[in-house]
Amino acid sequence: MRTTKQLTGKATKFTKKSKRSSRWFLTPSFLGVFLFFVLPFFVVIYYSMVNNPIAHEFVFLDNFARVARNGAFQRAVRNTAVFSAISVPLAVVLSLLLAVVLNQRLPFHSQFRTAFLSPMMVPVASIVLIWQVLFHYNGAVNDIIVNMGGDKIDWLKSDKAIFVIVILFLWKNLGYNMIMFMAALGNLPTDLIEVAELESANRWQIFVHIKLRYMSSTILFVTIMSLISSFKVFREVYLLTEDHPVENIYLLQHFMNNMFGNLDYQKLSSAAIYMSLAMIVIIGVLFAIENHFGKDVEE
């Protein structure tokens, strides 16, 4: 239904008044967002440009240069990038595969679905406890390896730690992504698929050219959510290995958390801004890709 303005091109007194009063109703929310999101954002920028909170001397980009040169930050960025590069694609692909399989209406498919969803409901601390029991130097996994004739592996304190974290991440997040994909698969236009079948398209062609194209927005969403979750895996890593884990699982949030503990708010703020910029670029790229591949679907 079109508004009066859309019909006549003019705003009536009533619409003008309702717009004015709606602004007043929006003001408390706006103030809240401003106070708790926008203003702190600018405070972070401020902290990143002064030398310390007592002297308040403006140093422009010196803190950014210092952080960029910092060995721990470089290591954290590298590790976070590697972790995200491994875990995010795996999370998307594996959850999509699971969704496709479970969409086939196999026997016990709803029980399987519940089983994959249940890790989401388990508190992080409990998950970490289980992982410690499994992957401790004297844990269950090493027991199995030793029984099979191998040597014990220090899973959490060696270069193998990254695999433990990837498995933990996938175990925790596959269920949620799978549900997203299952919902998207359920909303695909069946008439198009029928037409394609009639036109002798095989299942792979139907999957790639129709289903994936129609699911592009969901894939984008799942990818972004998985990317964000990959940054939040710090929680599990921190509980497993605390402030200063071995080098290859030292992530960006370890760096920022420790800077907070060291009261080095300048490095913390600068690192946070670097991370924000990186996220903006990555998400921007993802949106651009989705726009390209999903454009005709939206039309």
């Binding site: 721990a72 200063h244 071995v246 420790n258």
Partner: peptide, 8 residues
Amino acid sequence: RIQTYLDE
């Protein structure tokens, strides 16, 4: 671990 701490 300590090298990471010192780098920080």
